[in-house]
Simulated scan of single mutants.
Amino acid sequence: MFWGNHGWGMGSGAIFMVLFWVLVILGVIYLVQLIAKGQKRETDTALDILKKRYAKGEITKEEFEKLRDDLTKT
C-alpha cells in the first residue's frame, strides 16, 4: 500500500524546519536592531544645552548672550 507519499519525500520536513528556524532567527535579529535604534540618543550640543538653561530660567539674558557669543566664536 502507498501511505502518504505525495511527491515531497522525507527531506521536505527537514527543509521546512530549517526555513522556520532561519525566519525565527532573522525576526529576533530585526527586533534587537529595532530596540537598539530606539535607544540611541542624540547628544545635545553646547548651544542646545545653553538654550535649555536659558529657557528654564537658570541663566539671565545677559549670561545667555555672553555664553552664546563665546560658543559661536570661530
Rank of each mutant, 00 (worst) to 15 (best):
D70N: 07
H6W: 04
I15N: 07
T72G: 00
T60S: 15
I29F: 03
D69I: 05
G11Y: 10
I35G: 13
L23H: 07
T72D: 01
R41S: 06
I59D: 03
V24F: 03
K51Y: 07
M1I: 03
K56C: 09
M17C: 13
R41T: 03
V32Y: 00
L47E: 15
E42L: 13
L50M: 10
V18C: 14
R53D: 10
T43D: 03
E63N: 02
Y30T: 01
V22F: 02
V24G: 01
V18M: 14
A14D: 08
T45M: 12
G13H: 03
E62A: 13
R53Q: 13
I59E: 02
Q39R: 15
W3M: 05
V18W: 12
L50R: 11
K56L: 11
G9D: 12
W8K: 09
K61R: 07
L67E: 14
L26C: 03
E62Q: 14
Q33M: 15
A36H: 06
L26P: 03
G11Q: 13
S12H: 05
V22Q: 01
D44M: 14
E65D: 11
A36I: 05
H6P: 08
K61A: 00
G4M: 11
D70C: 03
E62I: 09
K40T: 14
T45D: 11
R53A: 13
K61P: 00
Q33R: 13
L67G: 07
K51L: 11
L67I: 09
V22M: 05
V22I: 10
F64Q: 02
E42S: 14
I49V: 13
V28C: 14
D48W: 10
R68K: 15
L47C: 15
L31F: 10
L34G: 14
F64V: 01
K56N: 11
L26N: 03
A55W: 06
G38D: 01
Y54P: 06
K66T: 15
G9E: 10
R68T: 00
L23E: 06
I49Q: 15
E42K: 15
F20I: 06
A36F: 02
G7N: 02
H6D: 04
